[in-house]
């Protein structure tokens, strides 16, 4: 806007209108901001378009049947990814149960005055460093440490409690259990960090109100802090779930890559991401189309989860304590 029509003659103020350059900088900045935002949307649309396009022949061939059948037989050109969808959701949900419990516990431990502030920061950094460990390292650790460590326990459980569906098969090697344990550790930093933020966002006056009513520390946490942070915790779980869904390398190394649908924790299984990673290198043209369809399914699941997460966070910010 220019100063025209707003020229106060005889005004001694040092106020002046923004210069030509400042106005240009303002416009340029706005342009860049819009462009960057638009670029992200365009990229997502392009990826969907490209993968969708490559998957189109497979979609035309198999329709929704691809999603509801559990078979992967390149020789017979017979494909269906129900087992991988099951494995993806089952492993992610189990990992999230573990990571959710420990992540929220860690967040409470680090934010509710159990530690002095400096020590809490050190702890927080250590937990965030978990997120920096490469997936393949987690995979190796799973193979050489986790699997041998849990195999005796797993087989004991199978022997004595085998009637429970969770323990219904013996554990030979890679399978759901080691995959879930490692996945939980990989998701933990996400859940812990975002839950911590949720607790730290609670104003001090809320804590005062709780103690002023005569709560013990545990009552304050359980009856006031947890409910107040609940929407942030929910968001942390959704984001953690999103991470778990897409995790590839460690799972490809640990889950056994076998398209089985079983409730048993010790049975090998497969996930969409590890199916893609393990099948792509040797895939023929036809199989690539099927894999693109599988990728589209994974993308769809991840998008739905993220949209739910965004909605939860939008709801939570509406309720934030002023």
């Amino acid at each position: 806007m220019s100063a025209e029509g707003f020229d106060l003659k005889g005004d001694n103020s040092i106020s002046r209108p923004p210069s030509r350059g400042e106005i240009l900088a303002d416009r340029a900045f706005r342009g860049i901001a819009y462009a960057s935002g638009g670029l992200v949307v365009a990229m997502l649309a392009y990826i969907l378009w490209e993968i969708g396009g490559q998957a189109a022949p497979a979609i035309a061939r198999d329709g929704l049947g691809f999603l509801t059948r559990a078979v992967w037989n390149p020789q017979e050109h017979d494909f269906g990814i129900l087992a991988e969808i099951w494995g993806t959701l089952y492993s992610s949900i189990l990992a999230l149960l573990i990571a959710g419990f420990f992540g929220v516990a860690v967040a409470i431990f680090l934010t509710q005055d159990f530690l002095d502030a400096r020590l809490a920061r050190v702890f927080r950094t250590v937990i965030e460093m978990l997120a920096a460990i490469p997936s393949v390292v987690f995979g190796l650790w799973g193979i050489y440490v986790v699997i041998p460590a849990i195999r005796p326990v797993a087989n004991w459980l199978h022997e004595f409690l085998g009637f429970i569906p969770l323990f219904s098969t013996p554990m030979a090697g890679p399978g759901m259990a080691p995959a879930v344990i490692v996945l939980a550790i990989m998701v933990l930093p996400t859940v812990a960090a975002i839950s911590q933020d949720a607790f730290q966002l609670i104003p001090y006056k809320v804590k005062e109100a709780a103690y002023g009513m005569g709560t013990t520390r545990w009552e304050a946490i359980q009856k006031v802090m947890l409910p107040t942070a609940s929407s942030g915790i929910a968001a942390s779980l959704v984001l953690g779930f999103g991470r778990a869904l897409g995790e590839t390398m460690a799972l490809a190394m640990l889950i056994g890559n076998s398209g089985q649908i079983s409730l048993s924790l010790f049975s090998p299984a497969n996930t969409l991401a590890s199916l893609l990673a393990s099948q792509f290198p040797e895939a023929g043209a036809l199989e690539v189309e099927q894999l693109m369809y599988a990728a589209l399914a994974l993308l769809g699941i991840a998008l739905v989860v993220n949209i739910i997460g965004t909605l939860i966070m939008a709801m939570s910010s509406k309720q934030t304590v002023s």
Binding site: V206, A209, P227, T228, Q319, V321
Partner: peptide, 9 residues
């Protein structure tokens, strides 16, 4: 307290 501090419930 000085600032109204109802719980988020």
């Amino acid at each position: 307290f000085q600032q109204p501090n109802p719980f988020s419930m």
